[in-house]
Design a protein around this nucleic acid. Structure first.
Lengths: 329, 329
DNA sequence: CAAGCGCATAAGATCCACTGATGCTCGACG
DNA sequence: CGTCGAGCATCAGTGGATCTTATGCGCTTG
């Protein structure tokens, strides 16, 4: 196959009109240039340079030169882009995040990242936690925002009891506190703070059993409170859960992150010793990590902190009804 | 610099999803592929393949692959064009010819060539003989149609008396016979055939002295006829010469090739022992010769033969006034 | 647990590319 | 006419790159 290095030598010779000058300019000896051109001619089977008085390209040389610029330019492009990628300024950056995170903490981080890294091809695909974990494991994404059970780090729901030594490097983003969501007319709807055991006889609406660790956290919390929750329904969508709660099908636990939009016919109340789920950003510890990933990680952390601050402010005692939006006028 | 061979290996690995399969397909061992990929990664400083369960490109790999197709395609293009050039099917073909030849024998040859070699980039630049010779010598053209003195092959007008051992390989095209051109009212205008010495007292119009060998041929012929011609004027254009002859400034020798268009107020007559100039096609014997050049040479030869046949037919005894066109009606 | 598949690595052979020295050709100049 | 200089070709030698063969190691499978 045609060797790009030889094409570069040929181009330089044609440009300077002499082997010696080209050699000087390329940092070779004249001998090396001569041999490379000879090798090139041997390879293509046709002389490419006319050595008679000066050095001029032959017809074959012209053909090669015409293509050489394009080939070398493209190689240069590839190298430039690789350089940018190594520096975190370009290349793909594939994120996955569970939908709630994608809708809450990520948008500001993504906006900031796009501003600071305009050449990076950033993509975010919403994915439930197990799928996101698998995508990261398979190298199909560079950064995953996941939910984990703070009492069982690295526990993987699919693999029965297996305590996975997964290869992820985690960055803690925030602890997402669980609240209790009641229909507006619930007997405890006016209470500022509720103990879980007060709800032992209510029917509960849960997320899907094999889904995010939310359910495990919830069930364990009930266990600690001394009862086993009575299941009314399952749903994997917090908006649907709100609907069921409003309709009086049951009550539910709702993490802070799921409360960015809230119907006005449900109320959300603090728990006494609220359980929480841990939200982390994970990257593959085995793979090379682009600076772009680190930059994104930092921005996501920052966004998560801001989000936590906003949540804390909502929970501020000066506005006890913080979780219930005023009815639309 | 990024090596195209490695890009090809990378592409094959990405395509087949395995080092071994790529190695089989490329005729390498698995080990070689592994080492080449490792070398590529060392070179770019970033892993390009994710070996975790199967082999998948990383971000850097994607970047490389995106460029690899373009680079390899262009290299393929260059190779294909070179192959075509080696086979005479493509590439540049630069001809030069003295203007009269370009206007007479060449057009049919060029038409045929363009039909049979549509991908060849054929150019014809009219050039006086010395310039054409220089262009061929300098490698600026691949094929030159020249005029030479049949009694002094290879004689070069510029280099005083030097009998040049030039590196040209010649193909004889035709012997271009000289005729005498007289004004319509000349005393000998009715004669079928004229001996040169009968014109010893006429003033002659010549081409430029340093120009094509026509003048040397003419002067030598006069010498053989026993006189030295009396110069009336010089011109390097046969159309202009016709004008001077018509105006009675003098008479002239005119080769057959210059007679494709002839004023009707001059007549052209045969000479008894007509001198001739030799028209040849020359190529550089030192340079590699593309098959396209040989094809063109053959076509030019053919066209010259046809031209000679047409001239001979014009000279046919059944039409004694062959050289004088009927006046336009 | 053994077998198989697939990539990594080691060792050795070979090839390739470059350097340095030298030869050859051609043109310039005394 | 002979010498000189510029510039390309060529040769020998060295070091690095790139193959192959052989082997190891990890992971998956039966």
């Amino acid at each position: 196959m045609l060797d790009a290095r030889r094409l570069r030598i040929l181009r330089e010779v044609a440009r300077r009109g002499s082997f010696s000058a080209a050699a000087d300019h390329l940092g070779y000896t004249q001998s090396a240039v001569s041999q490379q051109i000879a090798a090139l001619e041997r390879e293509v089977g046709v002389p490419v340079l006319d050595r008679h008085r000066g050095v001029r390209p032959t017809g074959a040389g012209e053909v090669l030169l015409r293509h050489a610029d394009g080939i070398l330019a493209r190689i240069g492009d590839a190298e430039a882009e690789l350089g940018a990628l190594r520096g975190g300024q370009a290349g793909p950056l594939r994120m996955v995040a569970f939908p709630t995170a994608g809708a809450t903490v990520l948008p500001p981080a993504i906006a900031a990242f796009r501003a600071s890294h305009p050449a990076v091809d950033l993509s975010l695909v919403p994915m439930e936690v197990p799928e996101g974990r698998a995508a990261l494991e398979a190298g199909e994404c560079d950064l995953a925002v996941l939910v984990e059970d703070p009492d069982d780090d690295g526990w993987e729901p699919g693999a029965a009891g297996r305590r996975a030594e997964d290869p992820f490097r985690r960055t803690h983003l925030l602890d997402d506190r669980m609240n209790v969501m009641l229909p507006a007319g619930h007997p405890l709807a006016d209470r500022r703070r509720i103990r879980l055991e007060e709800l032992r006889d209510d029917p509960w609406i849960l997320g899907r059993r094999d889904y995010v660790p939310d359910e495990a956290i919830f069930v364990r919390a009930c266990g600690r409170a001394g009862f086993e929750p009575q299941m009314a329904f399952e749903s994997d969508d917090y908006l649907a859960i709100q609907g069921f709660v409003a309709a009086g099908v049951g009550i539910a636990l709702a993490p802070d992150m799921s409360l960015v939009s809230l119907r006005d016919d449900v109320v959300v109340r603090d728990l006494e010793h609220p359980p929480h789920r841990r939200v982390v950003a994970a990257v593959d510890g085995r793979a090379w990590r682009s600076p772009a990933v680190d930059a994104m990680l930092a921005l996501v952390r920052e966004a998560a902190d801001e989000f936590a601050v906003r949540v804390a402010r909502r929970r501020d005692p000066r506005s006890p009804e913080h979780h219930v939006r005023a009815p639309r006028t």
